[in-house]
Design a protein around this nucleic acid. Structure first.
Lengths: 215, 215
DNA sequence: TAAGGAAGGTGATAGCTTCTAACCGGATCG
DNA sequence: CGATCCGGTTAGAAGCTATCACCTTCCTTA
């Protein structure tokens, strides 16, 4: 959201208005979900009349794509910050969980129901890859010296590190298990599928990650 | 979708039209997603003009709720069928996976992005509970005789069986782990978050369930 | 400094949507 | 047979996305 570093005053104004549009869009999404997002309503909230908003975003899809990009960026920043603070996988899980709980609809904008036919632009998938790199790095330590299991074969030689060396199958599998377990607990919790069951979702997540650590 | 057992011819006709409406709705959802579902378009496909459709569904939400109900019903039937055929948790996982792959948007109608403020009616949560009962029953066998872990404490005395006896913490935890792991892999796969990575998602699911079996 | 162009804002409008209202014809039921 | 209900119609209100033509204001450039 900090893109107000334009050179000319006009650029700064433009960036400012774009940021305000997105701000109001986030509020609508958080309270009513993406389908209810109305460009018209946002324009009125900003005190300008309908079509003015199209000077800043070509159409509804472009605004939503920008929001998705910001969501990914915020997500990747949260993951990276935890990683650089020395967090292990458990620490990363907590950071991601807190980030998701702060704004569930933002999490679902990334990991929720996909729109058939929609393909994220290149720069967004690049941000997603940043997260994967961190996950893989954080998965190196717990897998160090562990013997490869038969399941790891499928994951061997699927990906290379920054220096070109192959990521061991056990490491990639561990990272994917971490990711899918975290997402499994988190998304069902945020979607309310645990309501009525009395247990604390955090304890389920603890159990899932604990078992992952010992594998 | 088999609700055409009405008594009078009029009831049968009504049920028939309702079914046709839902049929076309499913096709729209499968190809374009829920937000693009248009009552107007459905009516025209059925050869009738717009407002006629409101004789069958009070509004858009009621149609979608009916679709959600049918999705849950179909899901529960698939799970129950596998269970009654003697499937263990692995078998249930395969049944659910196949059911989800047959129509990803139908899966996401149940487990995808939640609509803020929407609360499913009682009869739908009852269907969801049917599935939970099956999952718990299928989780009894693998947990029989296993010592309780510290993590199981949170899940003890949270739920009772049909006969009123309490579900052991280890069993509930096992069922929840099964559910969240399956959903974690499945939803990320169906949403396309594994595209570009070369591994087979089925192998990841195998690994996740195998590790669950040995816990 | 004056001129010109780009950028931002406006109202009007097309075309879509959901949904309500009023009305009409036919089937059903007492 | 008559009353009623049911399913369909057209008309229309209100909202949405998006485009168009036009106007003003600011910035740049000669």
């Amino acid at each position: 959201m900090t893109e107000a570093q334009g050179r000319s005053p006009r650029d700064r104004y433009r960036a400012q208005v774009r940021a305000e549009i997105k701000q109001h869009a986030w509020e609508q999404i958080a309270t009513q979900g993406v389908p209810a997002l109305s460009l018209n309503a946002i324009a009125k909230q900003l005190g300008m009349s309908g079509p003015a908003l199209y000077r800043y975003f070509a159409n509804r899809d472009e605004l939503i794509t920008a929001l998705i990009r910001d969501a990914y960026r915020s997500f990747a920043d949260a993951v990276r910050a935890a990683h650089e603070a020395g967090a292990d996988l458990a620490g990363l899980a907590h950071a991601i969980r807190d980030w998701a709980r702060a704004d569930p609809q933002r999490y679902f904008l990334i990991y929720g129901t996909p729109v058939p036919g929609y393909h994220a632009p290149e720069d967004i998938t690049a941000i997603a890859d940043e997260v994967m790199v961190v996950l893989l790095e954080a998965s190196e330590a717990p897998m160090a010296g562990k013997p490869a299991t038969p399941f790891d074969a499928e994951f061997a030689n699927r990906r290379t590190r920054a220096d070109g060396s192959p990521v061991p199958g056990a490491v990639l599998r561990h990272a994917m298990s971490f990711w899918t377990r975290l997402h499994g607990v988190l998304s069902l919790e945020l979607a309310g599928h645990f309501t009525g069951m009395e247990f604390d979702p955090d304890r389920l997540l603890d159990a899932e990650l604990h078992e992952l650590g010992t594998s």
